[in-house]
Each structure stands twice: as structure tokens, then as C-alpha cells.
Design a protein around this nucleic acid. Structure first.
Lengths: 196, 196, 196, 196
DNA sequence: TATGAATGAGTGTTCATTCAT
DNA sequence: TATGAATGAACACTCATTCAT
């Protein structure tokens, strides 16, 4: 029976998961390597058998969120459809990413400044590209007459704010599914509060 | 004897201001008392002539934002007017508070968990009251027919997200005044993206 | 594979011993963790691999004297015999304990107030029990007619003073053995200075 | 009206008294200049208007006990009388000195090692002279036949122990006067526990 | 005479990381 | 692969003392 998947536990992944939880709750600097070791049952020093450094742990957490959100945006833009539909899909994917990875998302938004300057730049560039993507959808919506001629920059920030802030409060396990929340947000953004 | 310079510098205030900047940029735990001392030109130990503790510094920063936002909400609710007008006023005041105190606001949103448990509870209670106030405005707007019968909880969170996220990006010194931003946010929320 | 050196040094014990010497000579507060580290050749921070805290070090020193003196008294009371014999045995054991652990005894008498309030209470209670034991022997001696009807409290304190003060001056390595000193003290106490 | 005694309160004395209490309770190193200042109602820095240094405070406290005990011994030796009478007088004066100055006595016995090496030597020399005096009385008592031919050194230490230990427990304000205690100690030492 | 501010050294303790075993 | 021990720098905070006012 060849081709077995490596039988050993993937410690790397377990460590990163433990670190994400601790970083989210206590902050990057408020979490010691001992805390992380204790969370998976080994000594602090033993962590270094599996990982490079504390900052590397942070990097992997931040990176995982960053890469997924980049890929989501790229796919939404690639698949076309109406701007309203794309807006809805962007909201859905972003809320799902944040909702299903709330600890990592919290670390992403709060702790990225603890990365090295070079890595911080990469994060900033990625965020910029994501927002560019969002604005391109808004612009196309205006061109096609689906949206009013709003200020694209501010409207983009408004939607970004609504989506990103989800890390503060949203848990998808509860009564409100990701789809329902995406529906409501998209509806609110498109239709506003005005009665018909 | 004209032209007297005020004999006493208010060191307390200067220290808090320096701390706010450093906490915002480097985080609470990433900022040492030495950093703060260096920022105002005295030794770390000398800070304690003027302040109680590092945590007290954080508390004063967090408290100043908390108290002002509570007062703003109370005044808006007290002065009445149409729900749309109140929503606009809430946005205006919150954006002004955050925009004019971006460092403190950043510390408020990122670092309050470094306060003692009791102080954290006070912050949470204050945020809850603020959101209650916002929801009461939304509810009244629906009752009066100014707004559609949206989900008050989600709509409240959406607006809160838009306003709070301003600490991440908004500087009132630039081309976009607080009034303009509040106008745009209120308009977007009320009218949505739908073309007329 | 003969001649193996014991693989592990008991650092805990070495640190406590070094601390006892330093606390006795310089006082608890006059001794820094750096002093203790230097005494055994490691950095101050490295001490914490082996110990809990500075106060814990003090506690262990104080406790060792306290527990032994409690056990000694209990054994003397349990083994019975004449009151004079018991008095002699109490003196012998106390002088041996103090003489053979002069540094720890010095720390016990001088530094116990640096323990936490709860631990101080335990020490006080232990001393009280020891003195109760001594008084019970004196009382029995009077009842049996071995001793005059002296004031038991004052006489107990007198003997306690003679024994405890040994930490100030007595080294059993010299010309005066513990047995000799106990003999002399017991004889002096029982017979007094009066010529026969 | 010249030659007035200085009207100002003698701050020196008040500071020393406050320091003695604090040193006795918290130890020399456990007492800050701020503690001492607070005890008499001025700021720490202001103490230096009246005193030289913290060590000087300690020195004055230790010195006051040392000088009085030296003078007491000198007077007892000078006034002659029977050895038993002298022993009684030594006990009386030493118990009075310690009992009426318990805080200072505590500081004397516990904190003298915090003095400079030179000052420590002076203290040691003084104690040695005092003990020499005591031994000379014992020797004369033996020569005159008032005492058995006991070991003068050990007997001297025994009496010294009984007297000095008084700082630990004796308060002359209670039911036991200095005279009564001196009587009991002298009787115990001379007559012993043996029934007549 | 007293203050408030400052100093600079020092406190006990924690930390990320290394390394021989 | 994991451990226990160690490092050396850093941490928040306190201290005795000085000094301009």
C-alpha cells in the first residue's frame, strides 16, 4: 500500500492554529512561546523543531487570510456577471473568509504591524489590490447604469468597512448564516433605507 | 508684566498624548515606558512623577474616547429631530471624534483588552449603550415610515462598522471634510446604490 | 559502565543554600537575584528555570527550620522521660538545629516578616506551638517536684531566649560541641549559679 | 530677650523616631525615604533639609542604644557592690533600655549590618566591651564564692541571650514591670530550677 | 523650609531563542 | 523529536538623592 499520506501529525498546522487563537485573544506580544507550547502540549523550545520563529508564525497566519482574500477577489472578477451579483459574491466570500477564520482574521487586522517592514509592505499592497478590485466592480455598475454615480472611493470604503468589521462580532455558527448576512448587506447597500 | 508664558507645562497631558501616538503605532505591549519617556525627553522612571502606571495611561486614553462617544450619543438622542437627521448627526459626531483623535481611537479599538477586567467591562457596557442608542433611532425611523422595515440589529452593525472603521483610514485634514464624509455615508445608507 | 557521575545536579537545593547564605549575611531585601545567580554561576534570569520566585526561596528556608523544630518538639514530648531529661533533650535538639543550620536559622529569625501575611501566620502559629510544648514540660516538672514553682511563662521565655540566641554566636565546629553546650545550659538552668 | 532656645520643632528627632518605628516594622531596606517622609508629613526630598542620609538615620538609632548600654555597664561596674547585686542591676538596666526603646532595640539587633564597615566595627567593639564587663562580674562572683565555678563565657552568653531576646517579646507597659522581670531573671539565674 | 521634578542605578521577573543531550 | 537549561536583553517600576524654585 504505497502512497500513504505522512502518518505524522502535522505539527506545523497545529502550532499555527494554536498561535492564531492565542494571538487573537491576547495579542501577538501578549502571547509567549511558552503559551503556544502549552496549548499543544510541548515545551517552548521544542516549538523550534517545527517552526522558524514567532514572527514566522504570525506571517503564516496573516498570509493565509491575505492569499485567500486575493484569490476570492480574482475569481469573482474573472467570473463576470452583473455588478450587483459580483458585489453580492464579494460580500459572501469575504464574510465567509472572516466568519470561518475569525481568529486568523482578528490577527490579520490587529497584528500585521508586528511583521517585518518588508512583509508589512506586501500586506498593504495586497489590501490595495483587493480594494482596486472592489472599486472596479463599482465603476462597472455605474457605467452599466446599475448604480447611481456615487463616489467610488468612499462607497468602496463603506462596503469594505462593513465586511471587515465582521471580525469583531460575527460568528457564522449562530442564527445568521453567511448567505443571509451577505444578502442583507448587499440589499442594504444597493437599496438603502428609503422606503419604496 | 505682560507676555508671561504659562509657568507650568501640563506634563500629564503631554505624556498621554505621546503614549497615544506610540500605542497606536506600536501597540500597548510593543511600547515601553522608555519609549514614552524618550518621546517627551525624560527618563522612563521620571514618568512616574506624573503618572500612576502604564495601564493608567491606557485607561485615560480609552476613557477619553469612550466618554465623548457616550456624551455625543446622549446629546443626539436628547435633541430629537427626524431619524434621518439624527442618523446624520450620529455619523457626523462619530466621524469627527474618530477623525480628530485617530491615535486615541486606534488605541481604543485595538488595545482595550489590555485593561483590567473591571475596566474592560465598563468599556463593553459603554459600547452596548451606544449601539442601543443607534438602534433606537433606527426603530423610530421605521415606526415613522422614514425607513423600510429592515433588520435593526444588522443595519445598526452595518452603520457602526462604517463609522468605526474610519480609524483605519480617515484623516480629516485632507480633501474630505468630516461633514462631507458624514453626508456621503448618510446618503449611501439612506438612498443605497439604486439609481432613481 | 561504572563510575557514572550522577547526571543531574540538584540546582534547587544549591540555589536555596546560596540564598540562605546571602540572606543571612545581607538580608532578604539586601540580596538581589543577581547576587544569588552570581553565587552559583548563572544569570539571574536563569534561576527561574529552577525556582518559583524570590519569596518562595525565603519560604523554603524558613519552612525547613520551622518543620524541623516542630518535629523535634513533638518527638521529645512523645518519648516522655523525666522533665529534666526532656528539657535537656529540647536544648540539645534546638541547639543542634540552629548550630548546624546557622544561616537558615538567621534567616528564620530575621527575615520571616518578608513572607506573605498568610505564611507569616503559619510561622507564628508554629512558634506558639513550640513554646506551648516547652511550657508543658516545665509544668510537669513542677507537678512532679523536680522544679521549684517558678513562673512557667517567664522561665519558658528565658530558656527560649538562651536557645534561640545561639544563631548569633554559636558554631558547633569549634571547641564546644552541641552536647557540651546543651549540658551547660541545662545545668545552669536547673542548678543556677548558687554554690552548693 | 536673647538666648532663646530655638523655637522650631526638632525635626531631626521626629524623623529619627519615625524611622525607628518603620525600620523596626519593615526593615531598613524595606523602608523608603518616602515612607519616612509620609510618617511625619513631608516629602521625601524635604527630609534632606534635616538629615544627612538614610544610613545616617540608621546610625543615630543604633548609636543611641549602643551608647546607653555602654554607659549603663560602666556605671554598674563603677558603683561596685556584690556581684549578685551587680548582676541584678545589669539585668534591670538592660531590660529597661530594651523595653523602653523596643523599636530602636529591634533596629539595633536586626539592622546594624546595613551600616558602613567602619561603623559596624564600632558596634562590634562596643558589644565586646559590654560582654567583657558582664564576664568580669561573673568572675568576681566566683572569686568571692557567691557563684559556683561555672564557665564564665557560656554563662555570660546565657544571660546576654535572656536579656537581649527581650526585644522580641517584652513590653514594659503590661503586667510585668521591668523590676519584676529583672528580679525573676536574676533569681532564675542565681537559684536555678532546683527545689530547695 | 519645603516642593516638585528629575536622575540613573537597580529591582524581580519574563522573553524568544539556542543547544547539548 | 523533545527536553531542560541557559542566555542576555528587556520589561515596568522603585529608590535615595539632588536641585532650582
Amino acid at each position: 500500500m504505497p502512497d500513504r499520506v505522512p502518518a505524522t501529525t502535522d505539527y506545523q498546522a497545529a502550532i499555527i492554529e494554536a498561535a492564531a487563537g492565542l494571538f487573537a485573544r491576547q495579542g501577538y506580544r501578549g502571547t509567549s512561546m511558552r503559551d503556544i507550547g502549552a496549548a499543544i502540549g510541548i515545551h517552548a523550545g521544542s516549538l523550534y523543531v517545527h517552526i522558524e520563529s514567532k514572527e514566522d508564525l504570525l506571517h503564516q497566519i496573516v498570509n493565509s487570510i491575505m492569499l485567500q482574500s486575493e484569490q476570492d477577489m480574482a475569481e469573482v472578477l474573472a467570473q463576470g456577471g452583473t455588478p450587483i451579483g459580483q458585489l453580492h459574491e464579494i460580500a459572501l466570500r469575504d464574510l465567509r473568509l472572516i466568519g470561518e477564520n475569525r481568529e486568523r482574521a482578528t490577527v490579520f487586522f490587529h497584528e500585521w504591524r508586528n511583521l517585518s517592514p518588508q512583509r508589512q509592505e506586501v500586506v498593504i499592497a495586497s489590501r490595495d489590490r483587493w480594494e482596486d478590485g472592489l472599486r472596479s466592480v463599482l465603476r462597472r455598475g455605474i457605467e452599466l447604469g446599475e448604480f447611481r454615480a456615487v463616489d467610488v472611493r468612499i462607497t468602496g470604503i463603506a462596503l469594505t468597512s462593513m465586511l471587515n468589521w465582521a471580525y469583531v462580532w460575527y460568528s457564522p455558527g449562530g442564527e445568521l448564516s453567511v448567505e443571509q448576512l451577505a444578502d442583507q448587506y448587499a440589499d442594504l447597500l444597493v437599496a438603502g433605507l428609503r422606503p419604496r
